[in-house]
């Protein structure tokens, strides 16, 4: 203890105190404050970044979920549309088929009618021609057998009879 006191140098104590306080004040203003602030700012920056990254991830998840929902809805819509289109097509085909049937039936009916008419005309025409032919034949026969009046009448009667029979 005695040695400690005798070793004590007041001058060194004085200078050390002044210099140390000076150093402390200067370092506080020009070194520690900016350094600690920079570290703090960086730490806060990191925290904020982490927070925002977390938020972004959450948003991303929400977005993905939304996307999936929208996609699902779109798929459903498409299916509905396809179904509707399919049914519409079938309906249209059915309608078309019905209309075609009706048209065809009409056409067939018309054709039958016209065939009938034509047939009747042909038969009439044939009858006319047969009559003309018969008249021709009759003329020739008449010319040959014109000599006898009786024969003529008899022949005519026979011929007519045949025609009627036909």
């Amino acid at each position: 203890m005695d040695k400690l006191i005798s070793d004590f140098s007041f001058g060194l104590f004085f200078w050390q105190t002044i210099l140390f306080i000076g150093l402390l004040l200067l370092l506080r203003k020009f070194a520690w404050k900016p350094i600690l602030n920079a570290i703090k700012e960086r730490e806060e920056g990191i925290l904020n970044s982490l927070e925002s990254a977390k938020n972004a991830r959450k948003e991303m998840q929400n977005l993905t979920a939304d996307n999936e929902r929208i996609l699902k809805e779109a798929r459903n819509d498409r299916e509905d549309l396809l179904k509707e289109a399919r049914s519409m097509r079938e309906r249209m085909i059915d309608e078309a088929k019905g209309e075609a049937q009706v048209e065809a039936n009409t056409l067939i009916a018309k054709a039958k009618e016209s065939i009938e008419t034509e047939k009747q005309a042909a038969i009439t025409d044939l009858k006319k021609q047969v009559a003309n032919l018969s008249i021709g034949i009759a003329e020739k026969l008449v010319k040959e057998e014109l000599a006898s009046k009786d024969k003529q009448v008899k022949l005519i009667e026979t011929m007519l009879k045949d025609v009627k029979l036909n």
Binding site: S9, G11, L12, F14, W15, Q16, L19, F20, G22, L23, L26, L27, F30, A31, W32, K33, P34, I35, A38
Partner: peptide, 25 residues
Amino acid sequence: FSITKGVFSIIILAAFMLWFFIGIA
């Protein structure tokens, strides 16, 4: 109140510390 070896060293180191840590800042 002499500038002894110790005081001189303190002045030099204080100057060094100022230069060094202000540089870091």
